[in-house]
Amino acid sequence: MREIVFDTETTGLSPAGGDRMVEIGCIEIINRVETGRHFHAYFNPERPMPSEAEAVHGLSSVFLSDKPLFAARAEELLEFLGESPLVAHNAGFDFGFLNHELQRCGRPPVCLSRMVDTLTLARSRHPGAKHSLDALCIRYGVDRSQRVKHGALLDAQLLSQVYVELTGGRQIGLGLAAEIAPATVDVRRAVVVERPVRAPRPHAASAEEIARHQAFLARVKGALWDRFLVAEGDQRAA
């Protein structure tokens, strides 16, 4: 199953109020494992960077001045996202900015049915606890030592590890089958994974092994199990 974990950095909190996306970082995971593929881009927001926002992510107007507009890399971004579910922390915020930028350049918005919100997952799994990305990294032992400021790609990498833990860890799909395991199909991506299961090997003890075991038991004095054998014999006699 292919999923994309992503994060954005912006000039503020409200795309409707004129704020813009300035960075996006996306991490590809398949069956809860990072593949090493990612998409990362900075964008010129065509407006000054407020000092409050710059204090959070460190992206200045000067740094962003020579970066491409979102429209210039929209096609590349959409190709990377494909039709996969999109995982984000407080996902409504990131989806809001992503869809705002897509609409500005004449692209259809990403369907909200693809949204996976790790903040909602964390609140459900750990009610009453802190649910920030930093807090979840601490809870699950994810190394966040390089996170001096917010950064979309780094935060997406951290979130991908947190997401794996929130959804059961790396053995989420571990199971046993009696005969032949059916193919696993993800209807959202139509990925088929064949899982052949080997027939069980015979493991019964041989006659020689049984004889050696009985000889060993005969040498044990005052064995606890003898008491139960005697008690069972008395009950049958009664």
Rank of each mutant, 00 (worst) to 15 (best):
M1R: 10
M1H: 11
F6R: 03
T8F: 11
T8Y: 04
E9C: 14
T10A: 10
D19W: 01
M21D: 06
I30L: 07
N31K: 13
T35R: 04
T35H: 10
T35A: 13
G36T: 11
R37P: 01
F39Y: 14
F43G: 07
S51R: 14
S51D: 13
S51H: 12
A53C: 08
V62Y: 10
L64G: 11
K67H: 07
L69E: 10
F70T: 05
A71K: 08
A72P: 00
E75C: 00
E76K: 06
E76F: 01
F80C: 03
G82I: 08
G82N: 08
P85L: 09
V87E: 03
V87F: 06
N90P: 14
G92I: 07
F93A: 10
R104K: 13
P108L: 00
P109M: 04
C111D: 15
S113K: 06
M115P: 11
D117C: 15
R123S: 09
P127Q: 12
K130F: 06
S132W: 03
I138F: 02
R139V: 00
G141C: 06
R144E: 07
Q146T: 08
V148H: 11
K149R: 15
H150G: 04
L153A: 09
L154T: 13
L159K: 01
L159M: 12
S160R: 05
Q161D: 04
Y163L: 03
V164W: 06
E165T: 01
L166N: 07
T167M: 07
R170Y: 03
R170F: 01
G173Q: 04
G173A: 13
G173F: 14
L174G: 05
G175I: 04
G175K: 08
G175A: 15
A177Q: 13
A177F: 15
A178W: 09
E179L: 14
E179R: 15
I180D: 15
I180K: 13
A181K: 11
A181V: 02
P182S: 08
A183E: 10
A183Q: 06
A183D: 13
T184W: 06
V192S: 04
R198H: 10
H203T: 12
A204P: 00
A207I: 05
I210Q: 07
L217A: 08
V220F: 01
K221C: 06
L224F: 10
W225I: 09
W225C: 07
L229E: 14
A231T: 02
E232H: 09
G233D: 14
